[in-house]
Simulated scan of single mutants.
Amino acid sequence: MSIHEFTVKSIDGKEISLSDYAGKLVLIVNTASKCGFTPQYEELESLYSRYRDRDFVILGFPCNQFLNQEPESNEKIQEFCRLTYGVSFPMFAKVEVNGAGASPLFAYLTSQKPFQGFDLKHPIGKKLDEILSSENENYAEGNDIKWNFTKFLIGKNGEVIVRYEPTTGISEIEDNIKRILNGK
Rank of each mutant, 00 (worst) to 15 (best):
S10Y: 02
K14D: 14
D20S: 12
L25I: 06
V26R: 00
K34H: 15
K34I: 07
F37R: 07
T38V: 13
T38Q: 08
P39H: 00
P39S: 07
Y48C: 07
Y48H: 11
S49G: 08
R50Q: 12
R52F: 05
R52P: 09
D55N: 14
V57G: 05
I58N: 02
Q65H: 06
N68G: 14
E72F: 03
N74V: 07
E75I: 01
I77Y: 00
Q78T: 04
F80C: 07
F80G: 08
L83F: 06
V87E: 05
A93D: 10
K94V: 15
E96H: 08
N98Q: 03
G99N: 08
L109D: 07
T110C: 09
S111N: 13
Q112L: 06
Q112W: 04
K113I: 09
K113R: 13
K113H: 07
F118H: 02
P123Y: 04
I124W: 00
K127E: 15
K127F: 14
I131C: 10
N138T: 11
N138C: 08
I145H: 00
K146T: 14
F152G: 13
G155L: 04
G155S: 08
G155H: 01
G158W: 01
V162G: 01
V162C: 09
E165T: 15
T167E: 05
S171I: 14
E172H: 10
I173Q: 03
N176T: 12
L181S: 13
K184L: 14
